[in-house]
Design a protein around this nucleic acid. Sequence first.
RNA 1: GAGAGUGUAGCUCAGUCGGCAGAGCACAGGGUUGUGGCCCCUGAGGUCGUGGGUUCGAGCCCCAUCGCUCUCCCCA
Length: 417
Amino acid sequence: MITLVKGFHDILPDDALKWSFITESARSCLRKYGFREIITPIMEKTDLFVRGIGQVTDIVEKEMYTFQDIGGESLSLRPEATAGILRSVIEHSLLRKEPILRFFTIGPMFRRERPSKGRFRQFFQLNAEVLGDDDPFTDSETISCACSILESIGAIDLVVEINSVGCKNCRSIYRDELRNFLKRHYNNLCQDCQRRMETNPLRCLDCKSPTCNEVMESAPVITDYLDKSCQDHFSDVRKGLDILDINYRLQPKMVRGLDYYTRTAFEIIDLELGHSKAVGGGGRYDSLISELGGPDISGIGFAIGLERLIMSLRDSDEKFSRSIDLYVAPLGDETRQTCHKLVKQLRDAGFSVETKNTLSSLKSHMKQADRAGAQKTIMMGSEELARGAVTIRDMVTKDQSQVSLNDIIIFLRGDGD
RNA sequence: GAGAGUGUAGCUCAGUCGGCAGAGCACAGGGUUGUGGCCCCUGAGGUCGUGGGUUCGAGCCCCAUCGCUCUCCCCA
């Protein structure tokens, strides 16, 4: 038997119902916020991610699916969506057609991490980006959009953790301060942090090693090093969140896994799901667009992982039960041709229809109709065939009617919606 | 990468002291010659993860190996 690739997973039909519920809820929510869908390839040139995400991030260092194409070019499966969207926007000069863009995409991302509950190597993300608008209210509006999406699929107890990681200037001042601090505590740091101290000191802040944690208690925090404009921006974002009644708390030590974030950074945590696990996160990026060759404008975006949301939905919910309009049960060999045709006519008329072509007993047809969640079952045996009629059974009320072949569609439409 | 757990029917899992391979659910047929869900009966379904060893005899004991799950970690 050939099995799944480790860390990859199938979405089987029962879960696929939840999947479409989530993506459809999200789409309708995103449309309300003015986002339009964009679909970019799952593979890009490796350099896009190296330049976009940052060379020394964990993702680029050891988690990308990177390989050499036959032509010798290095390609990678996308570990996140933003870089690809920006590449596309820049490549097609979309920002010349309109100054502000709101795009979203839903699709698979790939990271070669260790799989665990709700964490996979191929995972689906919903990703939304606002480009060309750095007003603080755009930040709070975007965060509010992310919360709305989660609420539309049933999340009740959300809290937004928010921080400002500053612009390039204040961050470089802070980074030096932090590095000085880390040097003084070098011996108490874990190996990773000793290395990260030079390459990417901010990552030390959310190191989970207990000793590092202790050290970090007294570390300087970024919010004390923000310049005037970053401070103002951050405080206006918070004002926006207050206006929109969004439940948030400040998290001065939060940093993101990707290097490109500046100023606003946030994670959304579903307290209901427990484990203080983030169901989404994102932030603002001031220079990413220009670094990728686009105009010097700012953007903000967020990502929501879908697997955990699917897990949080209940199987028993009626929304996720199998259902079709009609089941057609031909009884006896002589009715099969007429039924074969009838099924096609019903489908052409817009009904979802199942049947079983193999000759079988009525009992077996009924079981199949029940399993398929048919609203009505249409039966035809030799008697009905002779009269040019069918028997239609309502599977809920058990009422049965004799209906002439010519009147079936009228009967079904008059009876239903 | 570190730690722990677990592999037996399609699924969830029992399997006592080493002695014929089991249950529930699901599936198929019947009870009901043309009526689903509930009930009853019957049936089909197994390389006990894999390879070796001990033994008259191994699902069970020993060794090796592989897979999966969870935790740490990292994130979304």
